[in-house]
């Protein structure tokens, strides 16, 4: 395939991504300003006098025309300068960095586990469709997926935190080992919630592919089962699995928010919730843009994986080019 095609595709998608981010930033900006209450209260506190609040509004430039405020934000954001939190004075990037130390391992490790466990169990059960292993696994996964994340979290906390005292029930922990210990239950919660979706799509697709002629033919040629699954079945099922992975990883970000609350973790989700409550405009803008950029990137990666997995997509793209 020509690198040209991919380059053009990438350029188009990047242009679209920038547009998406711009739209998100405008919408978020307008929504914050439409919401009642302003950040001057976060800066001045609950007992601030009206005079103080007016001073703070003026010093933050909140009385300037909206277009001017937005332009100020945008021109700084281009240089990755999101300013400092109005409430905590901390540079927004520092706050995001601190949050990511919790949220990044939480989401990424959960995602890896979901992919590994989901595809492995999905492939296994597809081979034994209708058997007792299949029914038990799919049933269990469904229970995990249907239980709201906070219920799963509470059950895990009660068993492993309160009854067995194996793991801490709240907090973030300091140092690698402590942080890891504190993240075990949150990651387990997310993994339980997300695995069923991955298992289901893998199982369905693998089952379909197993019934296709090329697999029968491969078997007839005497190829090993492992070779057939690796080179033929999973690759053919790949597009749907990758698509589902994209939605799962995006879903993990929003589930992560709930899980952070339940486990008292100071991640990106908590940062956003606190910022919204305080109308802390720079932090809200920074975090929403980060999340939007993450989602856009995930979609882009998913699209690129299509190219890698399915020659038909490449051919189609070349034909259009």
């Amino acid at each position: 395939m020509s690198g040209n095609v991919i380059a053009r595709f990438l350029a188009r998608r990047l242009a679209a991504a920038v547009l998406v981010l711009l739209v998100v930033s405008v919408v978020v900006f307008l929504l914050i300003h439409l919401a009642p209450g302003g950040p001057e209260q976060a800066a001045g506190g609950e007992f601030a006098t009206p005079q103080q609040l007016a001073n703070i509004r003026a010093s933050l430039g909140l009385d300037d025309p909206l277009a001017e405020q937005y332009w100020r934000f945008l021109s700084n954001a281009v240089g990755l300068d999101f300013g400092s939190s109005i409430a905590t004075r901390e540079p927004v990037l520092d706050a995001i960095g601190r949050g990511l130390q919790v949220t990044a391992p939480l989401v990424l490790v959960s995602f890896l586990l979901i992919c590994t466990i989901g595809t492995a169990l999905g492939t296994l059960t597809a081979h034994r469709a209708g058997g007792s292993l299949d029914r038990a696994t799919v049933g269990l996964a469904l229970v995990g997926a249907s239980a709201p994340a906070f219920v799963t979290a509470l059950i895990l906390l009660t068993v492993f935190g309160v009854q067995l005292h194996w793991l801490p029930v709240f907090g973030t922990g300091e140092g690698f080992a402590e942080r890891a210990r504190h993240l075990v239950l949150p990651i387990a919660t997310l993994t339980i919630a997300g695995t069923a979706a991955m298992l289901q799509i893998t199982r369905t697709r693998v089952k379909e592919v197993l019934a296709e002629d090329h697999v029968t033919f491969a078997r007839a040629r005497g190829l090993s089962s492992r070779y057939i699954v690796g080179r033929s079945v999973l690759r053919n099922a790949g597009i749907q699995i990758v698509t589902r992975s994209g939605t799962i990883v995006v879903g993990l970000v929003s589930w992560g928010l709930l899980v952070e609350t339940t486990f008292g973790l100071d991640g990106i989700g908590q940062l956003l919730v606190k910022a919204i409550n305080a109308r802390d405009i720079p932090v809200i803008q920074g975090v929403t843009l980060l999340i939007a950029a993450f989602i856009v990137t995930v979609n882009l990666v998913v699209d690129l994986l299509y190219f890698a997995l399915d020659p038909r997509v490449r051919v189609h793209a070349e034909a259009r080019a």
Partner: peptide
Amino acid sequence: GRGTESASASY
């Protein structure tokens, strides 16, 4: 004073 950002200013 006028410029204070103290949450206790009213005291």
